[in-house]
């Protein structure tokens, strides 16, 4: 099962490598990983996704907690939550039919075309990972040149929040 784990981390040198090192050391995979400072620049917010059953997820959360630099850790997948991922896709768009088809596809997925050349379209799309996967499938035939995904960012729904 896919897990989205959110971490508040001291924004210190070496902190990120400890998180990443923990995963390889304990034999867990990281599928996606995003890190950036928050409104408080002494903190980093990190979201990572991994696969695992309940037992494994519990161990991962506990192991992450044990790192000295982590302040809070939650498995967002346990409660209701929102996940978003940003994707940029460069697609070969030389002939007009493809351009038209691509545009309508981008509209259906509520994306944006953010760069155009005579030979290419670059599309920006945000959503959950399944939506981004679906878009890739939809345009695969047209000729994908490059895909850049940000990895998942997640936040819990409702009144709950992760803060120091």
């Amino acid at each position: 099962m896919k897990r989205i784990i959110s971490i508040l981390l001291e924004n210190e040198s070496g902190a990120l490598s400890r998180v990443v090192g923990l995963f390889s050391q304990r034999g867990y995979n990281i599928d996606t990983l995003t890190v950036a400072p928050t409104d408080d620049d002494t903190l980093s917010r990190l979201t990572l996704t991994t696969q695992g059953d309940d037992h494994m997820a519990e161990q991962i959360v506990k192991q992450l907690h044990k790192l000295i630099d982590t302040i809070k850790v939650v498995d967002l997948t346990v409660g209701s939550h929102i996940e978003r991922e940003l994707m940029l896709v460069k697609i070969k768009a030389t002939d007009n039919d493809i351009r038209t088809e691509l545009k309508s596809c981008v509209d259906i997925f509520r994306g944006h075309i953010i760069d155009v050349t005579p030979a290419t379209y670059t599309v920006q799309l945000a959503g959950d990972s399944e939506k981004l996967d679906a878009f890739i499938e939809a345009v695969r035939e047209m000729g994908i040149m490059e895909v850049v995904r940000s990895g998942v960012s997640g936040i819990s729904r409702g009144d709950k929040f992760l803060r120091v």
């Binding site: 040198s13 070496g14 090192g21 050391q25 000295i68």
Partner: peptide, 14 residues
């Protein structure tokens, strides 16, 4: 040293 010792320390500082 911080890198080499990372998996075998409780914590490390540079």
């Amino acid at each position: 040293m911080v890198g080499v010792s990372r998996p075998i320390v409780k914590h490390s500082f540079l």
